[in-house]
């Protein structure tokens, strides 16, 4: 659709600009200010230059949290993308099953994040949880004591929580493929696999790109669920970037290091946001989602 050229449209955007600038630009400026000072009270501070940055960049707990974060997001994508696509292929295409599947599928997406953590505490505790008790019949399993078990529990929770988003997006992509494509494939005698590989997958590329990037970004920012479920433990084994940052900035109230950490975190996120935006633009220009 060709758009009208008119700079007066800015007036329509102005309210949004003001309200988001208030909530976004002021805080970011503040964080930049904090990051180069040592502050111990209102108006009581000294300029320390880049000291906090050097300290945070050399902080091995930050490095650990960063690699942990990438590992987590990587695993999330590795499991959720194929599983989500598989489920989307299995969803019914017509009849009453469509509504029922959609509603059931969306259920985990609509549960508050801290409640997700609560559900999984109750579900996986060895003494009272269905899952915890069942697994403990076979092997010893305790996510509060053993790092590997904590990771398994977190991954299960994450997959349970967010795979439906991939499924819903992939399903929407599948539904947009015209019936004629399938008929042509049938005439050619294409197998299920080649139909998937040569028709369905390429046609889903747009939505899958979006799903991939959304899942990456959101898993990269994860806070509430691991905070409730493991509190970052046992030890530091599930301390992700957000959890570590909150510990420094809000619990220890170290404004300087917290500010430096925030900006490092923000710059990483900004890069991925830009890639996300570029991908969106391409999807928008090319085939319609």
């Amino acid at each position: 659709m060709e758009k009208w050229e008119n700079n007066k449209a800015w007036f329509l955007v102005l309210p949004v600009f003001i309200i988001v600038a208030f909530s976004s630009i002021l805080p970011i400026m503040t964080v930049v200010n904090y990051s180069i000072q040592d502050i111990w009270g209102p108006g009581q501070s000294i300029f320390v230059g880049t000291e906090w940055y050097e300290e945070m960049l050399a902080d091995h707990r930050l490095h650990d949290a960063l690699w942990r974060q990438f590992l987590f997001s990587g695993l999330v994508l590795l499991i959720e993308m194929p599983l989500g696509i598989l489920l989307a292929l299995a969803m019914p295409k017509r009849g009453w099953g469509v509504s029922a599947s959609l509603v059931t599928m969306s259920l985990p997406l609509l549960i508050p994040w801290n409640t997700i953590g609560t559900i999984w505490i109750i579900f996986t505790r060895p003494d009272i949880g269905l899952f915890g008790a069942a697994v403990n019949q076979l092997v010893e399993f305790d996510h509060t004591a053993r790092p590997l078990d904590a990771w398994i529990t977190l991954m299960l929770m994450e997959v349970w929580h967010w795979t439906p988003l991939v499924t819903l997006l992939a399903y929407a992509g599948l539904r947009a493929i015209p019936e004629a494509y399938y008929q042509a494939a049938k005439i050619d005698g294409a197998s299920t696999w080649s139909t998937f590989w040569y028709i369905q997958l390429p046609k889903m590329r747009g939505v899958l790109t979006i799903a991939f990037l959304l899942r990456f970004m959101d898993s990269f920012l994860i806070y509430a669920e691991p905070f409730v479920l493991t509190g970052g433990g046992p030890g530091n084994s599930t301390t992700f970037l957000s959890i570590y940052l909150v510990k420094i900035a809000l619990l220890q109230f170290d404004l300087g290091p917290g500010g430096a950490f925030s900006l490092i975190y923000f710059v990483i996120v900004l890069l991925f946001s830009y890639m996300f935006y570029q991908a969106l633009q391409r999807v928008g220009k090319g085939e319609k989602v």
């Binding site: 002021l26 180069i36 404004l255």
Partner: peptide, 15 residues
């Protein structure tokens, strides 16, 4: 604006 803890270098940077 006191809570923002402005400094000269950051003011120059944002300007």
């Amino acid at each position: 604006l006191e809570w923002m803890e402005w400094t000269l270098p950051t003011a120059i940077f944002f300007s």
